[in-house]
């Protein structure tokens, strides 16, 4: 069945006609054209498709788009502001938390959620927050450094954008 999905995506209200069985991942990538969110597996195994739903990390490959009526969804494309990188994105760039970059959107999104509720996480807290994301390139060492660096940047005022004015 087709219905209209009203949703807030990266701070913007949208209304898109969708099929009931459309996955959030396919909605983002194919319907909206936001290809930053990646497909890394056949479902629920890798974390590459992680997005935030009402601020909480969620696997978009296991989520039906139609279940998110009026919910707030954030993807990697919504992490920066005004074309600038967020603290988390800068952290991943400057500390080489991204090699091939394929897992990176999922990690950036999960780390963004972490640093919102915990501005100064320990390494174990970082591990706990990123435990369901797989990276095949880095061995995670520099991902942990990237998140630490992002926390430092954020505390110095290079803040990750929480949400645009008017949202939530």
């Amino acid at each position: 069945m087709t219905r209209v999905l009203e949703i807030e995506l990266n701070g913007e209200r949208r209304a898109d006609p969708i099929e009931d069985n459309l996955l959030l991942l396919d909605y983002l990538r194919e319907t909206v054209g936001l290809t930053g969110t990646k497909t890394g597996c056949d479902g629920g195994e890798c974390g590459a498709c992680t997005v935030l739903v009402d601020g909480v990390p969620r696997l978009s490959c296991l989520t039906l788009a139609c279940s998110l009526v009026h919910r707030r969804v954030e993807t990697v494309e919504g992490a920066g502001a005004d074309g600038m990188l967020s603290a988390v994105q800068r952290g991943f760039h400057e500390k080489l938390g991204a090699q091939c970059g394929y897992c990176t959107p999922g990690f950036v999104v999960a780390a963004t959620a972490l640093l919102r509720w915990n501005a100064d996480p320990t390494d174990d807290e970082i591990r706990a927050a990123l435990g369901s994301n797989i990276c095949r390139c880095t061995g995670y060492v520099k991902i942990i450094e990237a998140v630490r660096h992002a926390a430092a940047l954020q505390s110095k005022g290079v803040r990750a954008r929480v949400a645009r004015p008017g949202s939530c």
């Binding site: 990538r29 290809t35 992490a79 920066g80 991204a98 970059g101």
Partner: peptide, 19 residues
């Protein structure tokens, strides 16, 4: 030196074949 194509990757702008 951070990678010259790093910003594309961390921002989600980098396009892979399926994108």
């Amino acid at each position: 030196v951070p990678m010259v194509d790093g910003p594309e990757k961390v921002s989600g702008r980098a396009r892979y074949t399926a994108d």
